[in-house]
């Protein structure tokens, strides 16, 4: 394949990665923005979403679209409830102290991951996509005979991947409407601005925190259900999304939602493109190191406003 079509293919892959990443990172960002805590177990909620999707589709059988459709709704809900429960019994008790929350969520990470290992097992298990048509893509070239449209061999994607991109856009819009137009969303944002004042005005901050923690985990799970037909469910699959989501949230500016979206696009696209052209390990080394440097020298994020 020529360079041009190759780049286009890489960009498409990047777009799919971005789509999943934006949902996962949004979850992490909302939790940090409102509750001011870092949830290290976020990747495990992602993994749980994928594993639950496998259970649900296997249990229901029938047409893949049926199981997938149910999983798309039920898995995030279950994960969200579990997270809200964990918030009640663990995080609330330690008063959301930032340091202790990190330690507690590290504990939660291992509990979720290892329980999955004991029940789901160490194998990677596939979930069938609800639909999966191969779509060849055209390429335009300016050759000897003027402008021509060609169909390079290998330049193709699937209908499912396009669906993932579309679904992420829809969810993002829904989330935006939820946060800006609904009462619960407004309460969440009020709590984010100033939890003490919110409390003084009768906002049940404790409950809001549980909702937010559940919402954050649910978003990660949703991303995982979407990705599981492309990438199989495995008990260790939460690690990379956690790291990438961290990177996105840091670049975008901790707790800034628009920053998170832009950063997810940036990271997802470059991850897709870089790993097509370069050694993935080297790409990861550079990315991880650069992110650490961003935190050191611009803690408000690359896209955040300058120091307060």
């Amino acid at each position: 394949m020529e360079f041009g079509p190759h780049l286009m293919l890489a960009s498409l892959e990047g777009a799919v990665i971005s789509a999943i990443l934006v949902l996962t990172a949004m979850g992490l960002s909302i939790v940090f923005g409102v509750m001011r805590v870092v949830n290290v177990a976020h990747g495990e909620f992602f993994m749980l979403g994928a594993v639950l999707a496998w259970y649900i589709t296997t249990l229901l059988g029938g047409h893949p679209a049926l199981g997938f459709g149910v999983a798309l709704i039920v898995a995030p809900l279950l994960v969200g409830c579990l997270a809200a429960f964990a918030d009640r019994v663990i995080l609330k008790r330690i008063n959301y102290d930032p340091d202790r929350t990190i330690v507690a969520t590290i504990g939660m990470l291992y509990i979720i991951q290892q329980t999955t290992l004991m029940t789901f097992g160490p194998e990677a298990r596939p979930v069938e996509a609800p639909f999966n048509h191969r779509l060849s893509l055209p390429w335009f070239e300016f050759g000897e005979n003027g402008f021509a449209m060609t169909w390079p061999w290998g330049l193709s994607t699937t209908s499912y991947k396009l669906f993932v991109i579309g679904a992420a856009v829809v969810v993002l819009i829904a989330l935006w409407v939820f946060l800006t137009r609904t009462k619960i969303g407004l309460i969440m944002r009020a709590t984010q601005q100033d939890s003490e004042t919110a409390q003084a005005f009768g906002v049940p901050v404790g409950q809001v925190y549980s909702w937010v923690f559940g919402l954050g985990a649910g978003l990660a799970a949703l991303g995982a259900v979407l990705v599981v037909p492309i990438q199989q469910a495995h008990y260790l699959m939460g690690h990379d999304p956690l790291l990438l989501a961290f990177i996105v949230v840091i670049i975008g500016g901790l707790g800034s939602l628009p920053g998170t979206v832009i950063a997810a696009l940036l990271i997802g696209m470059s991850d897709g493109i870089i790993s097509v052209f370069f050694s993935p390990t080297l790409a990861k080394i550079i990315a991880t190191f650069l992110v650490a440097m961003v935190l050191v020298f611009r803690p408000q994020g690359l896209l955040g406003k300058t120091a307060p």
Binding site: I94, R100, V103, A104, G107, L109, I111, L117, M118
Partner: peptide
């Protein structure tokens, strides 16, 4: 799944 113990201990300790 012995790391489960580590997880449980971490959570119990912090709380």
């Amino acid at each position: 799944a012995y790391m489960l113990i580590a997880g449980v201990v971490l959570v119990l300790l912090t709380v």
